[in-house]
């Protein structure tokens, strides 16, 4: 498969997903279709239907950048991000999906990258903590709020907390405290920064200028 073909298939997939929009999720269609895609595993991969155990070349869309790398089917997304792309902001606290330190956004949704095979993420937009900052260095409102409210101590869980917070704010810009708590309920912080994390997410949400009527 040529590079241009790969590119095309990946982007068209994204376009398809985007075009569907969020509203279709809640639409009461009898047909029942319209679930927003994550992890379809049909990303920027070679056309062969069986990838050998020794691996294949796959293209990833990480933080808006296309990166091609050779992976084995057993390689996890966390491993690719950390060891191949040097994106070590994504941490690993347990390796079993129980602590949330490895949270990244896959097609906009928070997932545990330690329990996600890299091959499943090929061609699907991946967003990591390193992708939040604007090119000119401006911090994302969440990052600013985390600093402002001191929503960190040792900082090892912080990337994951911020990514979970972002997954929430992207669909619900002005969440209440219960929604915030729920959004980071898969993120462990042993230092116990939760109260400041709640404040920070709340503040970042209200910075977006949308107020929730409650």
């Amino acid at each position: 498969m040529s590079d241009s073909h790969r590119k095309k298939s990946g982007i068209s997939r994204r376009t398809f997903i985007k075009g569907l929009g969020l509203s279709s999720l809640g639409a009461a269609t009898l047909s029942g279709e319209g679930l927003k895609g994550t992890l379809r595993g049909t990303g920027l991969l070679p056309e062969e239907r069986i990838v050998p155990a020794d691996g294949t070349e796959a293209t990833f869309l990480v933080n808006g950048r296309k990166r091609k790398v050779r992976i084995e089917p057993r390689t996890t997304l966390a491993e690719v991000l950390r060891h191949r792309f040097g994106l070590t902001g994504t941490k690993l606290g347990c390796g079993r999906g129980a602590c949330g330190a490895c949270t990244v956004l896959l097609d906009g949704k928070a997932v545990s990258s330690c329990m996600t095979l890299a091959i499943d993420a090929a061609g699907v937009p991946v967003e990591t903590i390193e992708g939040l900052q604007a090119k000119d260095g401006t911090l994302h409102p969440l990052q600013e709020a985390f600093i402002e409210h001191d929503a960190m101590q040792c900082g090892f869980c912080t990337s994951g907390m911020i990514m979970s917070g972002k997954a929430l704010l992207d669909i619900n810009p002005a969440p209440d405290e219960q929604e915030i708590r729920e959004s980071v309920s898969g993120n462990l912080c042993r230092c116990g920064t939760y109260p400041h994390v709640f404040e920070a997410i709340q503040a970042a949400g209200s910075k977006s200028g949308i107020r929730k009527t409650k």
């Binding site: 950390r82 060891h83 040097g86 994106l87 070590t88 902001g89 994504t90 941490k91 690993l92 990591t128 903590i129 390193e130 939040l132 900052q133 911090l139 969440l142 990052q143 985390f146 600093i147 402002e148 001191d150 960190m152 900082g155 090892f156 912080t158 990337s159 911020i162």
Partner: peptide, 21 residues
């Protein structure tokens, strides 16, 4: 006072021993 290294921690740039390659 907010942390002087807060920016490193919220951008993922803070390098822990775990991150050394």
């Amino acid at each position: 006072q907010t942390r002087i290294d807060g920016r490193e921690k919220v951008t993922g740039r803070a390098k822990y021993t775990f991150d050394r390659q």
